[in-house]
Simulated scan of single mutants.
Amino acid sequence: MSAERTRPLAPARREHEGPAEQRRRRTPLTAITGGAAYRRGRFDAVRAPLHSTSGVPFLVLCATILLGALLAVLVLNTTLARGSYEMSQLQRDVGRTAQDVQGLQEGVRQAEAQLDDKARRLGMVPAENPTMISVLTGQVVTGATP
């Protein structure tokens, strides 16, 4: 290759351009005399195009993560509220059932206390020597033997 060049490779600095614009500017490529003219074909040097990255995929990812988190919080909050409502309803039912049980137990206690009086009014007397039949053997058992 020849050391000769038709134009300088460094770009001319312009006063109104900032550092980012100066980096984006490319140096012009020019053919060098000699070298390529002696070969069969002519080869030109070509630079790769500048690639600018887009921020759209990143923004879509962030928005998707944010939306997913908001939906997860909404579902969690709804589930907890439903569970809280069911728990309070069950606690009310347990309270009512406990009151019913206490009422029934009080009724049984009162009936036990009045049993002797009702039996005497009907003409019943306490048995002095009860007689029982054994279910296992079929024999009649008298007295208070266990």
Rank of each mutant, 00 (worst) to 15 (best):
R109S: 13
G55N: 11
R25H: 06
L50A: 02
G107Q: 08
Q99L: 01
R82L: 03
E128Q: 07
R7H: 00
I65G: 08
A63R: 02
P130G: 00
Q89C: 00
Q110I: 13
E106G: 15
K118A: 15
P49M: 03
L80D: 11
R40Q: 14
R24G: 06
T53R: 14
Q110A: 11
A81Q: 08
H16A: 02
Q22I: 01
A69V: 13
L29E: 09
Y85N: 10
P49F: 02
Q139F: 11
Q22Y: 00
G107V: 09
D116H: 07
A81I: 08
S2G: 14
A111M: 06
V141S: 00
Q22S: 07
A72Q: 09
I32F: 05
R14Q: 08
G41L: 08
L76D: 08
G55Q: 04
R23L: 04
G107F: 11
A12Y: 05
S54D: 05
A45H: 06
L29T: 04
R26K: 04
L104I: 12
G34Y: 05
R7S: 03
A31H: 04
A63V: 08
P8F: 01
G95A: 14
T64S: 12
T78L: 05
V46E: 13
Y38T: 10
T97E: 05
R92S: 05
V60I: 09
P130N: 01
T142K: 03
L29V: 09
E86T: 09
N77Q: 10
S134W: 08
R120W: 03
V141G: 02
V135A: 08
A81E: 15
S2I: 09
E4P: 02
L59V: 01
P8G: 12
Y85P: 00
C62Q: 12
L29H: 07
L80Y: 11
L50V: 15
A63C: 03
V141I: 14
L71F: 15
T142F: 07
G95W: 04
P19E: 10
F58G: 15
L122Q: 07
A98Y: 12
P130L: 02
P28N: 06
V46F: 11
K118T: 12
E4D: 12
R42W: 15
R23V: 02
G34M: 01
L67C: 11
F58Y: 11
M124N: 07
T33V: 05
